[in-house]
Structure formats: structure tokens, C-alpha cells
Design a protein around this nucleic acid. Sequence first.
RNA 1: GUCCCCAUCGUCUAGCCCGGUUAGGACACUACCCUUUCACGGUAAGAACCGGGGUUCGAAUCCCCGUGGGGACGCCA
Length: 461
Amino acid sequence: MSSVRVRFAPSPTGFFHIGSARTALFNWLYARHTGGTFVLRIEDTDKERNSEQFLNVIYDSLRWLGLNWDEGPNIGGPFGPYRQSERAAVYSDYLEKLRLAGRTYEKDGAIWFKLIGERSEVFDEHRKKNVTKVKVAPTVIDDQIRGKVERLEDEDFVIFRSDGNPVFHFVNVVDDIAMQITHVIRGEDHLSNASKHVELFKAFGAPVPQFAHIPLILKQNGPGKMSKRDQGALIEEYQKRGYLPEALVNFLSLLGWNPGDDREKMPIAEIIRLFDLPGVNQSNARFDDKKLAHMNMAYLLDLPAERFVALAREYFIAHPASPTITHALAADSRYFHDVMVLSQPKIKGLEELPAYTAYFFTEEFATDEKVRGKVMGKGEPKARLSELSDALVRLDFASDLTIEDGIKNLAAEKGLGFGDYQSVARLALSGTNVGPSITGMMRVLGKDKVRARFDRFLATA
RNA sequence: GUCCCCAUCGUCUAGCCCGGUUAGGACACUACCCUUUCACGGUAAGAACCGGGGUUCGAAUCCCCGUGGGGACGCCA
């Protein structure tokens, strides 16, 4: 195990969104790439805004994505506890160190961090108030992605609120020191905070970790970074919609990073092998749900049939609302299996499955009137269906191929083509013109259902 | 307003560090092919170096200035 120690430090103040997931992913990838340690630390110092519910969302999402932590809540570790709400003793110890070093003072009931330098009062136009400026040299942030960034940190800032609770900048730095974090990988929105953090590290006499400020994810429409309220922002939404976590992880890893060549779809082991901080981009990336959907489809297509069927069943169980799903789950498991295997190469996402397979599980399926008009509008479809229905007795349902041969023979007898039977049979069987191959559809439905649907269609059409 | 970061097809990006490419790939879009519908797949097309200066024989690449985008400026994290 290498000496690299990274941490993901979310605050349970809202749902877990895509930007947080990507930050967690990059930390995790770096830890796995270097053989280091991935620490999960919960920054729940703001009691007003934290909730257990959100905490569980974080755990669930990380687990779903496969981002396992080596130290953190629930599993512990040598630097625990890993929830800041349980680390009050650590913070008072560190505050004492700072006090002893003469770097703190009290004002308005809060404790402030004192910068060293000549002081002067100036009026801040933007904040509309007087502030005390301290004459200091610019702080240098040595960033693995941005290079050396200089920022003037010239105002004292609060480290303990008047209610006695420490603030983010303080706990973040203290815990990074206490937990011996070597690399701080986080969103670029923290770059402006980094100067405060560097000054704190220096005040503690602690080594400053390597920083890596990664670009932000921008919302796909409109200005600004992606936030909780944006369409498609929440991880649990993808989980609910049946996206494959490995597809989402692959997609997310490519948002702001690339392996340096054209490869996109890569197994996670390969991503781990290739991931490194210098490969991370400097510019923000716009989220693109179409590309994610494409990635998801590619992963779905590659799934072994048994795994696909299992996931389909899981998805159906998780979405019990519709009657289609009730029927599907009530169906014979062999039949369910066959329907899903037939559908796997055709769909882009698991969420399409209920609608795509509905007519397999009920006789009450709707018929698309536009499609009916199209199919019934040319040739003599009723005659064809009637011929096919008559031929059913001698059709061998053993396999798609035997069905295909049977229909081809029939077509040859009549001097017609396969296509003359295909579209009307499909309409009678499914009520639409999209779906799996007609032969596969017939085989899975079975001869009895096929005959019944043909008869009913001929009687009503 | 101040400070910081960034800038290649509509989008994600390769190329930039170390100047010489028909500026490459993917998603999306379009056409065609495959085909038993719909997909998948295949082929093709369109599509970009933000602008202006400089340095240089030569700039997407190096420098400066604009402009644009993003972020930060809390007793939130």
C-alpha cells in the first residue's frame, strides 16, 4: 500500500448529485491507481442543515457506484471517528494549538483566525461595509492541475461560530492534518478557499497536501454549474431509472479526464490503471445525457443474458406501479426470461422495458392506430394473415429458424415475400411496428397465443 | 465591483508542454448500406482552433491585450 491518502468529504445537506459523485470517483480512482487509501469523511458541522436521510443517500449512492471506502463511517479506521459531528474533542485540541501560537482572537462571540501583517480599515463596495485588511504576501497554491496559483488572502476569518461550532475551513484543514491526507482532490469551486486552507496548514506547522482542483460540471442547458435542482443531476435518479452504475462511472470518468487516446468504453480496471492527475482537464465540461444514454446502451448490450434478465427483474420489482409490471412479475419465470432475452439487443435502457414488452404479458395491449392505418393500407394484409393463421398448424415452433422457414415456404407457395406476412403478423401480435424479430416474438409467445391473437385480429379488423 | 480559473466541431474531447497534422475520435444530426419492423452495426457527409496584436520562415500550439464562459467573495459546506 502506497502512502497516498485521499478523502471524499461530502456534507449531507442535500441529495447526492453528479458533481459530488465525480469528485468522489476521481478521489477513488486516484487511490486505487496509486494503491493508496480512500477515506470517507462526513462534514456535518452545520446541524441546522444536516439530516440522516441525506447521509444514507450518500452511502447508498457511493455503494451503488462501487466506490468503496477504506476508512470512514460504519467501517472505522485508525483516524476515526469519521463524522465531524463526533470530532469536537479533536477540534478543541487544534484550536488550543492555534491559540497558543497567538493566531486566534475573539470578536462578536466568534473565534477568528488571525493573519500576520499590518492592518487597515477599508470600505468594501460589494459587501457595503468596513473590513479590516491585512498586508500580506499572496498565498501560493501549488495545484496538480492548475499549476501555481496566487491568491491574496488578506482578511481574518471566523473559525468557530458564536454558537461554539467550528466552521468548514477549520474542520476541513484540521481533519486533513489529523487524517494524514496527502492529496486534496475537489471541485474548482474550492480553489478560492484553498488560500485560506494553505494559511491554516502553515499556521499549524503542518505539511500542505498536494492540491488538485478539478473542473466543474456545467448544466446541459443554460448558464452555470450543475446543481441539485437541475434535470438529471441526482445519482439516485439514475439508479431508479435502471442505469447501469458501471456505465455511469465510465461516463463520469470521461467528464474532465481522458486516457490520452480515443478509448471511451473501458472496464473499470483499465480506467484505474490509466487514471492520473495530469490527465485531468482544466476546463469545465457540460453534462450530456445523450452520451450517457449511449454509454448505458453499450454496457447493456454487453451484459451476459442471465445478468440482463436479473437486472430486468430487479427493475420491474422496483417499479410495481403499472399493470404491465404486475403482469410481467406474475408471469412464468421461464417466459419472463425469454421475453427479456429477446428484448436485450433492442433497447437502450432498462426503463424502456415495461412499455417495450407489455404485449407479451397481457392480451389487453393497445393497438397503434397510425401503424394500423399504414399496415392495413397496402396490399391485402387480412388475406395474408388469414393464410398465415391457416398455416399455423404445420408451423414448427421449435426455433426462430423453423418458424422463419415455415413462413418463407408459405410465402413461396403464394409467390410472395416474407415481408408480406411480417408486418401484419406483427400488428396482430403486438399492436405496433417496433419490437423484436417476428419469429422470436412468435416463438416466445407460443403457438396458442399467436393463434388466439391472429383470430381475434381477423374477427375485429 | 474585486480576486481566481478556463477557452478546438452543437456537446465530450485528442493535438498544445517540446511550433510544420488533409486539425483525429466519440455523442447528436443527415444520407446511404445491412435488414423481416424497430434497433444494433457499417459507410459517407456536414460541423471547430473566440477576436486582435506580437514572436517566428512558419502559430491551434509560445507571449500580450480584449472578449466570452465559469467560480469565489457567509458566524454554509
